[in-house]
Design a protein around this nucleic acid. Structure first.
Lengths: 408, 408
DNA sequence: TAGACTAATTTTAAGTCGCAAACTAAGGTC
DNA sequence: GACCTTAGTTTGCGACTTAAAATTAGTCTA
C-alpha cells in the first residue's frame, strides 16, 4: 500500500511544486507576488526559490518597478533547464518533437509507418528520439523525459500496457519495448493520444484556466479527454473517456467496435460519410476522409441531402455532448479533433442547440462550448507535457527517483 | 483563491486524519498496526494517538496477545465522542435519524409531508432534528452536525442551493432556511440524496474497499453516484452523475425532463410500466409504483408481454451501464434503488450480458456488477456520514472552524 | 549629492513536526 | 527470579514555516 504518511520533507516538496507551477503557468512573477498568491511567507518563498535558482531550475528575468521602493525581481522557469520530447504514435506514422521547458519546439521529425509489429514501432521510436536530439543539437543529458501518445487505451501500472485495436495492438508493453530499444534511460511516459491532446488544450488551448473540462475529440474515431479538478481523469485502469462507444441510439447503426448505436457510428467521420452515402445512394469522392468530409460540408450549401446529413450529425453530436454535460457537469466543453473542428466551424449553433435540448437545464447553464484551439498536431506537444508535469509535480528532476505513479 | 501553501501544522492534521480514518474504517487497531499501515513511525503514532485519546476522540478497547511480548492495546474511535444526524428529504416525507459515531442508530423520526414550501420543509427539518435529539436522550452539545439528503441537485458554495424539480424547488437556499429555523448552530451538510445513498453503499455496503465505483440508482427516477479515487464526484457545480437523463435512444420516448430518449424514460419505474401498458394495451394494477413493478416481475413467469418488457428493460439498462463503464472506467458497478434491486434480483444475468454487449472489452473486463446491499433507507445514514466525513477529514470537531469546502 | 523614504528580500530566532535511537512497560519462558 | 520478546514512550535532532528584525535597492527631496 502506498505510504499514507506525511513528513516534513513532503512540505518542502509540496511548496516547491506549488511555486514552480505558478512560475510555469503564470509567467514571470516576483517573489513578492509568489508569496501573495501562494499564501506562503516571504521568508519561505525566498528560501525555496533560492534553492531552485541554485539548481538552475529557475532564473531571474529582469525586474519591474514597484512604486517607490525596491524593484521586484521577476523569476521564471529556466526554459533551458532541460528538454522534453513528445512522440505521437498515429495510425499511419509517428511524429517526434523536441521542446525546451517553455514547450517551444526545437526540432521535429516525421516517419510514415505502415502497420508494423509493436517492437518495430518501438525501435523506430527509440531511434527517432535519438535523431531528434541530434537534430536539435542539445546534449542528451538535458533530456528530462519522453512522452508518448498512442491511439488506444493505456493501462498505467508498473509498466504501461497499450490496447490499440485500430493498429492491432492488444496488451503491448510499449514502455518496456521502447526502453529495451534505447540506449538512453530517459523516463518514458506513455499515454492515450486523446488524453495528451486534451492536456495540450488544457495547458495552451481552449481549456486554459478551467478546472472541469471535457475535450471532445472527433476524427475518424471519437473520444474524449475528461479533466476533473485540473487533472486528467483516468478511472480505475486509465481507459475512462471512451465517449465514442457510448450508446446513443439503442439498437442503431453497427459500430466497428462490434456494438450497435455507438456515438462514433453517427458522428465519427466514417459514420458521417456512410450516412451520406446511404442517404444519397452514392459516395462523395475525396483523396482521404478529411477532404471528403470537407467536401461534404461545402456541398451542404447546395445539396439538401448533404445539409440534412450534417444537420442530423449536429443533432447526434449535441445529444452526445449533453450526455457528457449531464454525467460530468463540466464548466467547459472543448470541441476538437479535425472533424470536430470542421463541424463546429459550420454548425456550432446547431450543435449547441441540440446540446441544450438534451441536457438538463442546470448543468447546461454552467457550460460554454468552444472550438479547440489546437489541431491533431497537438498530440505530440501534449505528450511532451507529461515529463514537464512530472517535473512540476516533484519540483525536481524527474530522472531521479522517477516515481511515476500519478502524473496528473 | 484557496491558500495553496502547506505548513508544518498541516502535517499533523493530515496524519491525525489518516490515523483516525484507519481506526474508523478498519476497526480497532493497535498503535503498532497503525504504524505499519500508515508508514508513520511508532513515535509519531504514539504522540498523535495520545493527543486524540486525551481529547476523547479515540478510546482504548482492550488488548490482544502478541506472541510472547507486551500485548497490543487496541484503539478505536470513541462512538460516544459525538452524535450525528441524517435527514432524508423525500418527495413524500422526511426521515430524521440520529446516530453515534459508529453510525449506530439511536433514534429515528418519520414525517409525512405533502408538497410544501421550502421554508415549511426547513421548519419541519429544524423541529424534527430537535425532536430526534430529545428522543435519543443525548445532550444537544454532542451533536457534531446534520447531514441532509435532498431529491435534486445541490450546488455547493458559500451556502448550499437546491434545485429539485420533482418537488418544485428551484434555487432553494435550504441550508440558510434550516439554519434560520433552528436555534442550534449545528453545522449543516446538504447533499443530493443519490450521492448520500451512494456514500452509504461505499461505507457500509457493496462499495466497500473499492476506489472507483458507480452506484446506479433506479427507482421512479434514475440517477447515479460516481465515486472516483474514493471520493464522491461532483463536477463543477455538483450536478454530475445525472445518468437518468443521458440519451440512450436518440429521438426516442419523451422523458419528464422534456427531452427525448432519456435512459430514465426506459428503465425508470414509470417508463417500464408505461412501456408495458403500451405493449399490452392495459395497465397493471398496484397500490403504488413499487408494488406494480413487483407485480410485473412476478407476471413475467406467465406473461410473454411482461417477460419481453423486462427483457428489453435489461437491454436498455445494460446499455446505460455500459455507457458508465466506457466513460468512467470504474472497478465496480453497484445496482441500487428499489427498482434496480428488484430488476437485478431477477435479471442480473441479462443486464450483465447487455452491458458486455455494449461496453468496450477492456474497461468491461475491469468491472464487477453487484446489487446494492442497502435500500433507499440508506439516504439518511448516508446523509449522516457527511458530518462524520468532516470529522475524519479534519480529525477535529467539525463544529469548530467549520470550513466545509471539500467534504469528499 | 546626501539623506529620507518606500517596498522587496533576506536573515534571525522561535516553535512545530516526524523520526531514529534509547528506554520503559508488560507479558511469557525456563 | 533471570531473561527474552514485543509494544509503546521519551529524547535529541534535523527539517520546515513563520513573524519580526535587518538589509537591500531603488526613488524622491532638499
Amino acid at each position: 500500500m502506498a505510504p499514507k504518511r506525511t513528513t516534513v520533507r513532503d512540505l518542502r516538496r509540496q511548496n516547491r511544486s506549488t511555486l514552480l507551477s505558478m512560475l510555469f503557468f503564470d509567467g514571470p512573477l516576483s517573489r513578492y507576488e509568489l508569496a501573495g498568491r501562494s499564501g506562503l511567507s516571504a521568508a519561505t518563498v525566498s528560501t525555496v526559490t533560492g534553492e531552485m535558482v541554485d539548481e538552475g531550475l529557475v532564473v531571474e528575468a529582469g525586474s519591474v518597478d514597484s512604486d517607490g521602493g525596491r524593484p521586484r525581481v521577476l523569476l521564471r522557469v529556466n526554459p533551458d533547464f532541460g528538454h522534453v520530447i513528445g512522440v505521437d504514435v498515429g495510425e499511419t506514422g509517428i511524429k517526434v518533437e523536441l521542446f525546451d521547458l517553455a514547450l517551444t519546439q526545437l526540432a521535429a521529425l516525421d516517419h510514415a509507418l505502415s502497420p508494423s509489429s509493436p517492437s518495430a514501432v518501438a525501435s523506430l521510436i527509440a531511434s527517432s528520439v535519438r535523431d531528434v536530439v541530434d537534430a536539435a543539437g542539445v546534449p542528451a543529458s538535458t533530456v528530462l523525459g519522453v512522452g508518448i501518445g498512442v491511439p488506444g487505451t493505456v493501462e498505467q501500472g508498473a509498466t504501461a500496457v497499450v490496447h490499440a485495436p485500430t493498429i492491432g495492438w492488444d496488451g503491448v508493453r510499449l514502455e518496456e519495448l521502447v526502453a529495451d530499444a534505447s540506449e538512453s534511460a530517459w523516463p518514458l511516459y506513455v499515454e492515450n493520444g486523446a488524453k495528451t491532446q486534451g492536456q495540450a488544450e488544457m495547458w495552451f488551448g481552449a481549456g486554459r484556466g478551467a478546472k472541469h473540462v471535457v475535450i471532445a475529440l472527433i476524427g475518424s474515431g471519437v473520444g474524449a479527454a475528461v479533466v476533473t479538478d485540473g487533472g486528467v481523469y483516468r478511472g480505475a485502469t486509465s481507459s475512462a473517456g471512451e465517449w465514442g462507444h457510448t450508446t446513443i441510439v439503442y439498437g442503431g447503426r453497427p459500430c466497428r467496435c462490434g456494438a450497435l448505436g455507438c456515438l462514433e457510428a453517427y458522428v465519427g467521420a466514417e459514420g458521417i460519410l456512410d450516412r451520406y452515402r446511404k442517404a444519397r445512394g452514392r459516395a462523395l469522392t475525396g483523396v482521404d476522409e478529411q477532404s471528403t468530409v470537407a467536401a461534404l460540408i461545402e456541398a451542404a450549401a447546395g445539396s439538401k441531402t448533404a445539409a440534412r446529413v450534417l444537420e442530423e450529425t449536429a443533432g447526434y453530436l449535441g445529444a452526445g455532448i449533453a450526455n457528457l454535460v449531464n454525467l460530468f457537469n463540466p464548466e467547459r466543453i472543448v470541441l476538437g479533433g479535425w472533424a470536430g473542428q470542421a463541424l463546429g466551424a459550420h454548425q456550432l449553433d446547431r450543435i449547441v442547440a441540440a446540446t441544450r435540448a438534451h441536457a438538463l437545464r442546470h448543468p447546461y447553464e454552467q457550460i460554454s462550448i468552444e472550438l479547440g484551439h489546437l489541431g491533431p498536431d497537438a498530440v505530440a506537444v501534449g505528450a511532451a507535457t507529461l515529463p514537464v508535469a512530472a517535473l512540476l509535480d516533484r519540483a525536481a528532476d524527474p530522472r531521479k527517483l522517477a516515481v511515476r505513479a500519478d502524473i496528473a
